[in-house]
Design a binder for these strands. Sequence first.
DNA 1: CGCTTCATTGACGACGTTCAAGACATGTGG
DNA 2: CCACATGTCTTGAACGTCGTCAATGAAGCG
Lengths: 246, 246
Amino acid sequence: MRYNNASKFSPDCSDCPIRHRAVCARCDADELDHLERNKYYRNFQAGQTIVWADDRMEFVGSVVSGVATLTQTMEDGRTQMVGLLLPSDFIGRPDRSTAAYDVVATTDIVMCCFRKKPFEKMIENTPHIAHRLLEMTLDELDAAREWMLVLGRKTAREKIASLLVILARRGKLPEDVNAPVVFDLPLTREAMADYLGLTLETVSRQISALNKDGIIELKIKRNVTVPDIYRLTQEAGDDSDGGYLN
Amino acid sequence: MRYNNASKFSPDCSDCPIRHRAVCARCDADELDHLERNKYYRNFQAGQTIVWADDRMEFVGSVVSGVATLTQTMEDGRTQMVGLLLPSDFIGRPDRSTAAYDVVATTDIVMCCFRKKPFEKMIENTPHIAHRLLEMTLDELDAAREWMLVLGRKTAREKIASLLVILARRGKLPEDVNAPVVFDLPLTREAMADYLGLTLETVSRQISALNKDGIIELKIKRNVTVPDIYRLTQEAGDDSDGGYLN
DNA sequence: CGCTTCATTGACGACGTTCAAGACATGTGG
DNA sequence: CCACATGTCTTGAACGTCGTCAATGAAGCG
């Protein structure tokens, strides 16, 4: 949406919108300087595949703006999304030459990239990067495990509510916990289905049901208003109200 | 089974059965020396809870022998296993004071432990440990994502077959890929159900079906013979035959 | 305007859950 | 040695959630 070409970004890391959350979060001025000299921006359009599973991966990088997905596909075509990449999330694994999953941009997206070899050297020489990368990986592992509960044990309605809770929280600061939340869905019904282990028809039906029950309000198909986050959280089955995961 | 008390282990890391796979795998002699002075062994019996979710975690450690599970439980009692911990796997997260999940021993188990504070210092001072821990965490993340596909998109029969493939491979070297594999199930039907997002009845039925179809052979309830791993792999839906994940 | 993509809704059926009974193995006490 | 209890597993029958197949609607675009 905003930021649909790389030139909109200054090369100055200190202005970067993901400065304090990305893999560079713990770096000091010197380290940032070094990153600055090696980084380059890349743009991808909505729907474009950023990386193909099993292909050689010659770069790694952070999502600066936009949304991407990690998906896995079986030979008969069944697909499961295994990661949702939002701004500040990291793509690519050091020490591995090929990608394990497809990475697809679901909106226009800007990435801050590094060639893989130099980045691996930086990890070795810059403990702050290595440390932050471990921290982020552990957070992703927690998120994946949270999602395993959703996939394995929740009903269709709870699954939809769980996804909406995540999307509603991400981006919003927890200050106005009780204020209505409005946001656009960055995913199609099919992508949501792939995330939740459902069919797109079931996703559609459950969203309609939540709408009818007043848990959410849909004016336009992709725009959601959540009048009461707490009720939505209850529908998700996560009734331990206060706690936000990260 | 073997190793049901700590005294069976020499304090010498170089004799350790998980020496080359655990968090210490990359350490040199000096570093190992330091670990040796700080480690201590702990035993847990089958069924015993090693860590309770949300409890304070004052140690971290590696599974030396035996099997443990990570599980998550909803208020209404639904539970989902989110990790299966086999020898060399690591328990505990540096930089976090409380456990995120229940950790339960499903067999008698021996762990090689470190108090948390000293271990965090060692991570900072010993890049080999930090690096290996990142590597292991990335592997766990891949395993979790693999499991998300199982939970979200596979049928009950494929789920059971997937679990059996993992258990059959782990421990066996891939040299005799085509030889029959025999092993004991370290999990009850209920634990398998919790792993797979099924009920224990469905697990039982599908195991019986695989037995009837000759994919596996059950003489005793907990002992499985796999005459042809390739057929089992096909039943799991992972027909890209050769590739073992790690 | 037709074409494509995305979403909604209905009818029907399959797969897995739920509820229930019983089998099997192990251990305890009379 | 048997009676009885307990935990684990198996099997059956009925039900319900969600998937499948299909038709229709809504929005964007050349």
